[in-house]
């Protein structure tokens, strides 16, 4: 430490810095971190700019490789279509976007078996099972019970529609799968932007931000073709009666839930807030306080 009389300004600066570090030293020489209830996070302009930059770069990158992903999905769906014996075939359709680009989308050419009395009663059975299950669940699972009842109501409405207006249902498997695949492509492209708004703004390192982004994107990339091929198989074998149920329960909502589940997991990772710059610099400090092992008077307390 320089002498005050020789270097007054340097002395004051160094002294202030050292005092700032010593304030956070406990009895045993360790760092006293603030209680996490006291921690606050400040959104600084550089965080916003950084988050926006990463989000836009990743979303832009997805747009660039989207057609390659469509090619991959086509291969995955064609492979599994053969394995599970779903009749029909796969093809690739190209939608022009502007003059210089096109969007490639895998298309499954496949029809559904007709709605028979047995299949209609199967739908009734599904609704009944869902309803019954909702009443058998323990009370702590009330949210799940209500979800099951909502699904049962949905299936009952389908039953009514297909009984009252047979043949009036306007959708088919080919169109359904194609629309869902397109929705999946855009949803995955939106993931970096969604995370930019809801995750990048928090105190997570760049590695963690990229990790959760790629985790969600890769998971959905592998899930979408398998999921909607499974939908196609079910609708083909059970008739179009089950398409509303699959669409509203296991379609986009499932993909959004996957996003939320991985997001919540990533939010539980430890951020940098409890290792703020002051604490990090404190670790580098050559402490004037020696290490001690005796029970400290102020060790257990939060700073402040």
């Amino acid at each position: 430490m320089p002498e005050r009389r020789d270097y007054p300004r340097a002395y004051d600066r160094v002294l202030r810095w050292q005092l700032e570090q010593l304030r956070r030293r406990g009895w045993a020489g360790g760092l006293i971190s603030p209680h996490r209830a006291m921690l606050t996070l400040r959104l600084r302009p550089r965080h916003v700019v950084g988050a926006a930059l990463v989000a836009l770069l990743l979303s832009g990158g997805w747009v660039l490789i989207m057609n390659r992903v469509s090619g991959l999905w086509l291969q995955i769906m064609e492979f599994w279509r053969g394995v599970i014996g779903l009749p029909g075939y796969m093809t690739m359709v190209h939608y022009p976007v502007g003059d210089h680009w096109h969007l490639a989308v895998p298309r499954l050419i496949c029809g559904a078996l007709p709605l028979t009395t047995e299949r209609w009663w199967l739908g009734v059975g599904l609704a009944a099972v869902l309803l019954l299950a909702s009443f058998l669940l323990p009370r702590r699972h009330v949210p799940v019970a209500y979800l099951l009842r909502a699904a049962a109501v949905l299936q009952v409405w389908s039953q009514y529609f297909f009984a009252a207006w047979p043949g009036a249902f306007p959708y088919d498997i080919t169109g359904y799968v194609e629309v869902m695949v397109i929705a999946g492509l855009f949803l995955i492209g939106l993931v970096p932007i969604l995370l930019g708004l809801t995750y990048y703004v928090f105190d997570f390192s760049l590695v963690r931000r990229l990790a959760v982004t790629f985790l969600v994107m890769i998971h959905l990339t592998l899930l979408v073709p398998m999921l909607f091929l499974a939908h196609a198989w079910l609708i083909h074998n059970l008739s179009l009666l089950f398409m509303p149920f699959l669409f509203l329960i296991f379609g986009l909502p499932l993909e959004v839930l996957v996003f939320i589940a991985l997001y919540s997991w990533a939010m539980s990772w430890h951020g940098d807030l409890d290792r703020t710059a002051a604490w990090r610099s404190g670790r580098r400090l050559v402490a004037a306080v020696p290490e001690r092992g005796v029970a400290p008077p102020d060790k257990e307390d939060s700073h402040g």
Binding site: M226, A230, W233, A261, S264, S268
Partner: peptide, 15 residues
């Protein structure tokens, strides 16, 4: 196929 699809869909909910 269905086990694989369901398993993959449920994997994110494990944590």
């Amino acid at each position: 196929f269905f086990a694989l699809t369901v398993g993959w869909a449920l994997l994110p909910f494990l944590p």
